[in-house]
Design a binder for these strands. Structure first.
Length: 868
DNA sequence: ACCTCCCGCCATGCT
DNA sequence: AGCATGGCGGGAGGT
C-alpha cells in the first residue's frame, strides 16, 4: 500500500525497470535506466534520470566525471541537471547512442567491468546518497525502486545492501519498497548490542574452538582437544545455531513482522553474526572460513557440505563488501602455515559492550549469566512465542503496537512520496566508477557528510568501556598504540573509560547515553530460548518496557512500541528480570573488564606458562557451558534508541550506566569457570589474544582513531562519530594529559600504507599488536577506500580522511609474522588458532614469547590488502 | 587454479 | 495471481 503511494510517481518506470528482469543485468541496466527514465521517470522523478545517465559512464571521461561528481556534490548536481535529462530521454536507445556515440571501444571498455559492478561499489554509491547522520526530522525514506534505478542495478542488489544495513540498523523497513535511512546514529549502539550478543553467544569461544580444530587437524593434536570440540559442537548444536536471531534495535526494528518472514536466515542475521565475530574476537580479524563455519553452525565442521560452505562464503563476501563500504571492516589476508586465507579485519569503531549503551549488559554476561538465563528463558518463551518466524518474535502486544505504528508510518510515508533522498539527490548518481575511485568518492562524500552532519550524538560515556580494558597493559598500550604505546595506559584504561569508544563518543563525561548502554531487550527465539538452557543466559533481555520508557521520548514511537510489544509479549516477568539484569550485567561486564587486570595477569602468566592444556580444557569447558547458552538469538532491543535522540534516552542509560559502574562484579564467570573474564576471555581466547585483547580493550582502534581526532579522518571513516564528537578530542587530551596516550601518537598517523612497519615495541606483545590494528585500520581506511585517495579528493575531504587516519606509524601494519601458535590465552584457552594472524599484524616481534606454545608457531601475516 | 562474487533463477510469502 | 523479497549456487572475471 504504502509502497504504491510512494511509488506513485515513480512506479511506472520503476516497475518497468525494477521489477522486470529488465534490470536484470547491469548490462542492461544502462538501457534500463534510460528507458525507465524516459518512460516516466523524467516526468515523474527527475532524480532518477540523473542517475541513469550517470549510471553508466561509458567513457573514461564519464567515469572521471562520476568520480568527481561523487566527490563534489556541486558538480554532481550540475551534471545531473544537464545531462540527466538527456539521458532520460535516451532510454534504451540512449544507451545505444551512448555506446555508439561514444566509441564502441570505449563503450566496451567502459563497460562496467565486474569490479565496477561490485556490491561494494554499489554500496558506496548507495551510501553516498544519504548522510551518515541524517536529520531525524527530515524524511529519510528510501525507495528501493528508485535507488535501484538510480544506481542502475537490479533491485536484487539493493536488497543485498539494504539487508546488511538493516542488520546494523542503519536503515529500517517502513513498508514495501520503503526503508528509512538512519545512518550511523545507531551504529555504535547496534554494535555494542551485537558485541554483547556475540559475547553471550560465546562466539569468541567458538572461534577458538574452530581454530583449535584446525590446528588439531593440521597437527593432529586433535584428540586431546577433541572432547572439547565435541562440546563445542554440541553447544553449537544447541545454539543451533540457533543463532539465527536477529538483533533488533529500537527504532529500527521492525521491519515488520510480516515482512520479515525470511529473516531468520537472511543475510541480516548472517551479517549480524559476522559483525559479532569481529567484535568479540580479540584480534578482530576474522577469516571467512571461520566465519562461515560459525555461521553454519559449524562446529560440526565436517558436516558442512562443501556446497553449503561455499554458499556461505559467497554470502559472507556479499556482506563483507557492504561492511567494507561502511568502513567497518577491511580485507586482509592471514597467512598461516596452511597458506593464505582471506580474512577481514574490523576497522570500525571499537565498541565496548557496554559502551554503546546496550551492550554493557551483554558483557556482564558472565556474572549475570545466571540471571540472564532466567531472563532469557522467560523472555524467550514469552517473546518468542510468537515466532512465526523464528527469529524475530516480538511480544504480541508489542507487535500489535508496532503494526499500528507501522501502519501509521506507512500511511504517512507512503504519501506520495517523498522519496526522500535526502542527500541522495546530490549524491545520487553514481555512475559506475572504478570501484576504488568510486569508493573514494563515496567515502569522501560520506566523510564530508559526516562532518557536516554534526556530532550528533552525544557522546556516550564510555566508562563502561573501561572494562574492556583488559588487563594487560601492553595491550593497552597497543591500543593506544595508535595513540601511542604506553603500556601504562593499560591499567588506566581499566580505570579510565577513556578508551572506550572512539566511536561513540567517548566522552567520558557525558554519560548520558550511557555507556552503559542503553538498555536493550534481547529477544530470544522461542525455540532457542526454550531449548536452550539458560545457562548463562544470554538472556539479557532488557526489558523493553524499560527501554520504552527511556526511549520513549524521542525515539520514536517505534522504539517504544517495540519495547512495549516486547514487554507485552514477553511476559512481564521476563522483562522485568531482564531489565534488572541488564544493568547488573553491565556492571558485571564492567567489572569484568576492570578485572582485566586479573585477566591480564592471568593471560600473561598463561602465556608465559604456555597455556597448559588444562587451561585449555577448562576454557573449553567453560565454553561448552557457554555454548549451550550462547546463542543468543533473539533480538536486542535497545531502549535507547538512537543516539540522536539520545539525550532523552539518556536517562535510562544513565541508570544503566550507573548500575553498571557499581556493579563490578567479579569476573569469575560462571560460565568459564576457571576463567573469570568473559569478555576478556573471549578475546583472549581468540588468540593472540593476550596481546590483542588488551589492546583492544584498552584502546579500541576506533577509540584510538577517534582520539587522533583532529582529523581523525581515518577514524571518521570508520567512525564518523568519533570524528564528530568533540568529545573524542577531549578524551584524547585527557589521555594525553594523563600520560596514557602520547600526543604524538595520535597524530601519527600517517597512514602507513603499506604494511606498516612500525616497529612497535615488541616487548609487550600486546602493544605491538595494537599498533598493528591501528595501522591496519588506517590502512584500511585509506587503502580500502580507494587506492587513489588523492585523486578522489577533489575535495579536500577525502584526503583528510584518509590522511588523518592513520596513526599508523605506530604499528606496522602490514603483516607481521608472528609466531603464533597457540596462545593460550589467559582465558584459557589458548587457541592456537589461526587467529594469531591478526596479531601478527600488529606485532610481530613478540611472537616469540607466545609463540611457542603448542604449536609451532605459525606465522601469520596479515596483509591488508585492499581488496579490490 | 583459486579467489571473488556477480547474476539472476526461482522459492517464499505477503497482498 | 501478482509482486516483493531474498536464498542460492552456477559460473565467470580477476589474480
Amino acid at each position: 500500500m504504502e509502497n504504491e503511494k510512494e511509488n506513485l510517481f515513480i512506479e511506472p518506470h520503476k516497475r518497468v525497470l525494477m521489477k522486470s528482469p529488465l534490470k536484470e543485468s547491469t548490462k542492461e541496466n544502462v538501457a534500463r535506466a534510460d528507458l525507465s527514465s524516459p518512460n516516466l521517470g523524467p516526468l515523474t522523478t527527475p532524480t532518477k534520470p540523473k542517475e541513469v545517465s550517470q549510471g553508466e559512464p561509458w567513457t573514461p571521461t564519464a567515469n572521471l566525471k562520476m568520480l568527481i561528481s561523487a566527490v563534489s556534490p556541486e558538480i554532481r548536481s550540475r551534471d545531473q541537471q544537464r545531462g540527466l535529462f538527456d539521458n532520460r530521454r535516451g532510454l534504451p536507445e540512449a544507451k545505444d547512442c551512448l555506446h555508439e556515440h561514444f566509441f564502441g571501444d570505449e563503450y566496451e571498455k567502459s563497460q562496467p567491468s565486474r569490479k565496477e559492478k561490485s556490491l561494494g561499489l554499489l554500496c558506496h554509491k548507495f551510501l553516498a546518497r544519504y548522510p551518515k547522520y541524517p536529520n531525524p526530522a527530515v524524511n529519510n525514506d528510501i525507495c528501493l525502486d528508485e535507488v535501484a534505478e538510480e544506481l542502475n542495478v537490479e533491485r536484487r542488489r539493493i536488497y543485498d545492501i539494504v539487508n546488511v544495513l538493516e542488520s546494523l540498523h542503519m536503515v529500517s523497513r517502513l513498508a514495501k519498497n520503503r526503508y528509512t535511512w538512519h545512518g550511523r546514529h545507531n551504529l555504535n549502539k547496534t554494535l555494542g548490542t551485537l558485541k554483547s550478543v556475540g559475547e553471550e553467544n560465546k562466539y569468541a569461544e567458538q572461534i577458538m574452538m574452530i581454530k583449535k580444530k584446525e590446528y588439531e587437524q593440521e597437527f593432529d593434536f586433535i584428540k586431546s582437544y577433541s572432547i572439547e570440540d565435541h562440546v563445542v559442537k554440541s553447544n553449537t548444536g544447541q545454539n543451533g545455531h540457533t543463532e539465527m536471531c536477529f538483533v533488533e534495535l529500537p527504532g529500527v526494528e521492525f521491519r515488520a513482522a510480516s515482512v520479515n518472514s525470511r529473516k531468520d536466515k537472511s543475510l541480516r542475521v548472517m551479517s549480524q553474526k559476522f559483525v559479532m565475530l569481529f567484535l568479540v574476537s580479540t584480534p578482530q580479524i576474522v577469516s571467512l572460513e571461520i566465519a562461515a563455519k560459525i555461521l553454519i553452525g559449524e562446529d560440526h565442521v565436517e558436516d558442512l557440505d562443501k556446497s553449503k560452505f561455499k554458499t556461505k562464503i559467497r554470502r559472507l563476501y556479499d556482506i563483507a563488501n557492504v561492511l567494507s563500504s561502511l568502513d567497518l571492516i577491511k580485507k586482509v589476508h592471514v597467512t598461516e602455515e596452511r597458506g593464505r586465507k582471506p580474512a577481514f579485519k574490523w576497522t570500525g569503531p571499537e565498541i565496548s559492550p557496554s559502551t554503546s549503551g546496550s551492550s554493557p549488559v551483554i558483557t556482564s554476561a558472565i556474572s549475570d549469566l545466571e540471571m540472564r538465563r532466567s531472563a532469557k528463558e522467560n523472555c524467550a518463551k514469552n517473546l518468542f512465542s510468537t515466532r512465526g518466524k523464528p527469529n524475530f518474535t516480538r511480544h504480541p502486544s508489542l507487535i500489535k503496537l508496532v503494526k499500528s505504528i507501522e501502519s501509521d508510518r506507512r500511511k504517512i510515508n507512503s504519501a506520495p512520496s517523498s522519496p526522500v533522498k535526502n542527500k541522495a539527490e546530490s549524491s545520487q548518481n553514481s555512475p559506475p566508477f572504478p570501484n576504488k575511485m568510486a569508493q573514494l568518492a563515496a567515502i569522501c562524500k560520506m566523510q564530508l557528510e559526516e562532518q557536516s552532519s554534526e556530532p550528533r550524538k552525544k557522546v556516550k560515556v564510555q566508562l563502561a568501556r573501561s572494562r574492556h580494558y583488559k588487563p594487560v597493559a601492553p595491550l593497552d598500550a597497543s591500543a593506544n598504540a595508535e595513540l601511542e604505546m604506553s603500556p601504562s595506559l593499560i591499567q588506566p584504561l581499566g580505570v579510565v573509560p577513556l578508551v572506550p569508544s572512539p566511536l561513540s563518543p567517548a566522552v567520558p563525561v557525558i554519560l548520558p547515553q550511557a555507556p552503559s548502554g542503553p538498555s536493550y531487550a534481547i529477544y530470544l527465539q522461542p525455540a532457542q530460548a526454550q531449548t536452550m538452557a539458560p545457562p548463562q543466559g544470554l538472556s539479557p533481555a532488557v526489558c523493553p518496557s524499560y527501554c520504552s520508557q527511556v526511549t520513549g521520548a524521542k525515539d520514536s514511537t517505534d522504539a517504544t512500541t517495540k519495547a512495549t510489544r516486547d514487554a507485552t509479549k514477553s511476559s512481564g516477568p521476563c522483562r522485568c528480570e531482564s531489565l534488572l539484569p541488564a544493568p547488573e550485567r553491565q556492571g558485571a561486564k564492567n567489572q569484568t573488564r576492570e578485572a582485566p587486570g586479573e585477566r591480564g595477569s592471568k593471560r600473561s602468566s598463561l602465556f608465559e606458562d604456555c597455556v597448559s592444556k588444562k587451561k585449555y580444557k577448562e576454557d573449553l569447558k567453560g565454553l561448552d557451558s557457554v555454548a549451550a547458552t550462547l546463542f543468543p538469538s533473539g533480538y536486542l532491543i535497545p531502549l535507547t534508541q538512537c543516539s540522536s535522540l539520545g539525550a532523552e534516552s539518556i536517562l535510562s542509560n544513565k541508570e544503566s550506566s550507573g548500575t553498571l559502574s557499581p556493579n563490578h562484579r567479579l569476573y569469575s564467570s560462571p560460565i568459564a569457570g576457571v576463567i573469570p573474564v568473559t569478555s576478556s576471555e573471549l578475546t583472549a581466547v581468540n588468540f593472540p589474544s593476550f596481546h590483542v585483547t588488551p589492546l583492544k580493550l584498552m584502546v579500541s582502534p576506533t577509540s584510538v582513531a577517534a582520539i587522533p581526532g583532529g582529523n581523525s579522518p581515518a577514524l571518521a571513516s570508520s567512525h564518523p562519530i568519533a570524528i564528530q564528537n568533540p568529545s573524542s578530542a577531549i578524551v584524547n587530551f585527557t589521555l594525553q594529559h594523563l600520560g596514557l596516550i602520547s600526543p604524538s601518537v595520535q597524530m601519527s598517523a600517517s597512514p602507513g600504507p603499506g604494511t606498516g612497519t612500525i616497529p612497535v615495541s615488541p616487548k609487550i606483545e600486546a602493544v605491538s599488536i595494537i599498533p598493528e590494528n591501528a595501522g591496519s585500520q588506517h590502512r584500511r581506511v585509506t587503502g580500502s577506500d580507494s587506492p587513489v585517495p588523492g585523486q578522489s579528493q577533489p575535495n579536500g575531504q577525502s584526503v583528510t580522511m584518509t590522511g588523518t587516519q592513520q596513526p599508523v606509524p605506530v604499528t606496522p601494519k602490514g603483516s607481521h609474522l608472528v609466531a603464533e601458535s597457540f596462545f593460550r590465552t589467559p582465558g584459557g584457552p589458548t587457541k592456537p588458532t589461526g587467529l594469531s594472524c591478526v596479531d601478527f599484524d600488529g606485532a610481530g616481534a613478540d611472537k616469540t614469547s607466545f609463540g611457542s606454545l603448542f604449536v609451532p608457531q605459525r606465522k601469520l601475516e596479515v596483509s591488508t590488502e585492499d581488496v579490490h
